[in-house]
Design a protein around this nucleic acid. Sequence first.
DNA 1: CTGTTAGCGCCTTCAC
DNA 2: GTGAAGGCGCTAACAG
Lengths: 355, 355
Amino acid sequence: MGRGKKAITIRDVARTAGVSVSTVSRVLNDKDDVAPETYEKVQIVIRRLGYTSSLAARSMRSRRTNVIGLIMPDVEYPFAIEVMKGVNHAITQHGYEFIVYTGGEIRNESTAERERRYISLLNSSITDGIILVTPATTHFSTASPVVVVDPNSQGPPCPAVIATNRAAALNVMEYLIGLGHRRIGFVTGRLGLESAVRRLEGYKDGLRQAGIAQDPDLIQIGDYTEEVGYACAQRLVSLANRPTAIFAANDQSALGVYRAVEEAGLEIPKDISVVGFDNIPEAAHTKPGLTTVDQFIDQMGRVAAEQLIALIQGEAQESETRKMPTQLVVRDSCRALATSAFEAQPSAAPRKVAK
Amino acid sequence: MGRGKKAITIRDVARTAGVSVSTVSRVLNDKDDVAPETYEKVQIVIRRLGYTSSLAARSMRSRRTNVIGLIMPDVEYPFAIEVMKGVNHAITQHGYEFIVYTGGEIRNESTAERERRYISLLNSSITDGIILVTPATTHFSTASPVVVVDPNSQGPPCPAVIATNRAAALNVMEYLIGLGHRRIGFVTGRLGLESAVRRLEGYKDGLRQAGIAQDPDLIQIGDYTEEVGYACAQRLVSLANRPTAIFAANDQSALGVYRAVEEAGLEIPKDISVVGFDNIPEAAHTKPGLTTVDQFIDQMGRVAAEQLIALIQGEAQESETRKMPTQLVVRDSCRALATSAFEAQPSAAPRKVAK
DNA sequence: CTGTTAGCGCCTTCAC
DNA sequence: GTGAAGGCGCTAACAG
């Protein structure tokens, strides 16, 4: 109910309470010098009228809104959704509100431009600071703090949260090589992102460490989407000398790999082992369960939010980058090759996770 | 880069371009009467300075922001995420922007209150209208249009989008009964919501239609969460006269049912058949695949967004409720009971869906 | 065509 | 302790 009423303003409250606008403002902001009885009276009117001060007007006057903005590349992107969950939890605990801004498809040509638009739209307007997830833009200008989750590789030097991608990818390679695999395909991520670059480095590190020559055919350029992961895997699978394992730079790509492998009439893990990266919720529900790297995405969101809040409150150093730990989650998508099934296990013993 | 600069205002642009503030404003809003060369000149300065008008100030003056708000109960709620995706698509196609607002946990005691706060916070401030998903509040006051997705059963008479829940639930019952099940457990949804009430009605309709007596033990009060669905299923499973099938009011509850059944050492569908409702993405990935009702959630979001936009533009009637179609999606979580495996199939022939 | 003048709703001096 | 006045960044009348 209650449609059609025009919004009530601070003036309505003042008039009804029989005081001046500034007195109401003082009550709203819990200023000290208001007579207790006046305070009460105004509070009652506020409640009765259901008044809420306008975010627009408020943020225009005082540089504090207690709202932080989250800019996501795409709602279809599970990684971003997980970050959002983490941010949400942290934010509510700190008494902040939280606004999500998201554009259309991730591969839209103007993504970078839209991001910049959003940044200046939210910033210096409505939010006290911004969290940017997997940005496409490499430069932006803003007056309030920004924290980036999974930054661009040539990104601006602003605080960032990122996983220990290279080490984690190396760990995956050690695991696969320990299982006896030597022809290992790799589906890269969006190479503009630092995470994608680092994971590729980890892949190469793994080969080098094991003395395996790189084969360019085995590296397919993906972009973290299921669709392109699917196309990459199709190419890998139809190779004359087919790989025995495929390492996908993220779980969505791995889902694409699953689809391609299935369509090729092959079976996971019997014919091809698959490893992903991210440990998104779906990874636990695939058949077979996807072995992947947990990078605790929601924790990344939480850390980003906390760092942003510290920045807003002037308690934090500038361009600090937080490295987040990772963990190999072994499910059922990999198998040991017969020839070397009993070789040494990887050094960082992975935990077998049930669910 | 570019931190620390204070936000540039329309005045900076005006000064730099050597024109008045209002001229810049005219350029910004594409007013007709601006000299082409002036327009160019101003545009160049705008771009060079990287200026974006302040949402706060803009929305304070002109009652149009081209931003619509989405209020979700909880980011952990897959239904809401799906709605968000649909809204997002519709919104960007219509040239609107889109802001998500979400509070903490759904069962927090003050959810209704927070919703109301958000409504008046967003409304008459920053957005031209609001989409409210599965509201906890039953009354609110706002000056701008609101569309509700999956409304409260005692909700205010505002435009709503809701599935044909009762008929869909009846259809599920016909399906299960057609498979020979007669003891069918039901895990309800959040009974404050109309959808939950209607699905329960459909369940009872199905029993009545088949001449099966209601057994109160078989109806467990859930709330659309996995956790409570789990608890409900535990009770159903440990019943002396255990049901042969469980119909969960949504997929999340069904996931809880899966867990409880598994923990009880039983197997789906051999020992117990399970049906869900919603067809969230996870439903396709469970083992075994969950038979459920697709209610095309993203379409609901799309429809809600389009109706809201029509409302904002004054082209729509007031309290219209849109009924959305549903479809039974048969996967692998139900089996026919031996005694009546060859009975008649349900009237509305369900489509067997592969993925 | 463009500049000037009012405010939008609110907060912050500065008087009283 | 409280009210009046000014201005945040912007748009919408009016003048010219």
